[in-house]
Design a protein around this nucleic acid. Structure first.
Lengths: 173, 173
DNA sequence: ATTGAAATATGTTCGTA
DNA sequence: TACGAACATATTTCAAT
């Protein structure tokens, strides 16, 4: 067990140290290498990864199981290209709620809008910042006027259209 | 080949129709159902999906191939949980560039910062809006002071810390 | 933690409707 | 498009180190 000494007060925070230990998972270089392959392609065969890294497939399999049970891997997803389906306009919308306490109800309503991809409870002027995908500007306008502004407690919105997403990636290992 | 008749001019726009055809991919209900399963879990066995939907595995396989070659599916990814690795602070940063023409160089520099997950060229006050993942507030501060502000052309930034990501999903089919 | 080999499960192709 | 059966790959387990 690690304890941290506060230099000013002289008090050791053992509780704090324990909390940090229970949350933080350590992964080594081989784990990182395995994950780098699978973060790029979830269906990459274990044996191909094994050959590239130079350990057996069984070892990779065992490490992956550990990474799953420890929660490092939270799942796998097929990624769909919205543009091919006709969704060309991405936008960020800063939403003002007249009472911050309305947040949880507002989020429930936002979840019902399929075009809403992300919702963040943020510091700063807005109550929440949302990311949204629409077919075009007209669709975006309709959403703002008939869905977002219609949510109880929403007083005002500020919209930023993403003309080009220049970076899109996960955490780098 | 489809041609579109302009009622006013009487001219048929074959070229336009072809262009629309090449961009917009139509997918039917079965495709959507297959994708819904795989967007949730890229490693879900085809035969399990086949049983749930009520068609053969070979048919699913054939449809998936079509969805891949048409570009509807852009890949598959293992998703890593940043919190478990000690990355607890997500933030959005609005970046002002003193010249809009600096954008492409600035993006190159931003790509070199591993903590930057997204970068959007947006309408509105900022030149770009970036999404970033950090270990904690101190790490965020260091990044702002030593990496982001150090990029040539960056005049000012506005930071919004995400205290809680309440929605995180792909386009809904 | 790692291995190779065996056992099981899954993906892919192909002839046919 | 869809099917089922045959075939090819991938995964998981296991005994041993």
């Amino acid at each position: 067990m690690i304890s941290i000494l506060n230099q000013t007060t002289g008090i050791r925070f053992k509780y704090q140290a324990m909390k940090i230990n229970s949350l933080l998972i350590e992964i080594d270089g081989i784990d990182k290498e395995i994950l780098r392959y699978l973060m790029d392609d979830a269906r990459k065969p274990i044996l191909q990864i094994a050959n590239k890294i130079g350990i057996s497939g069984a070892a990779i399999h065992q490490r992956l199981k550990k990474l799953e049970t420890s929660g490092v891997i939270s799942g796998s997803k097929f990624t769909v290209n919205p543009k091919v389906l006709g969704y060309n306009t991405m936008a960020f919308i800063g939403v003002y709620l007249d009472k911050a306490s309305r947040n949880s109800e507002a989020v429930k309503d936002l979840k019902k809008i399929p075009e809403v991809l992300e919702c963040h409870y943020t510091t700063g002027n807005w109550s929440v910042l949302i990311k949204i995908i629409c077919r075009d500007n007209e669709h975006l306008m309709q959403l703002l006027n008939t869905k977002i502004q219609a949510i109880e407690g929403v007083s005002r919105t500020e919209t930023f259209i993403s003309l080009d997403q220049q970076i899109d990636r996960q955490i780098q290992l």
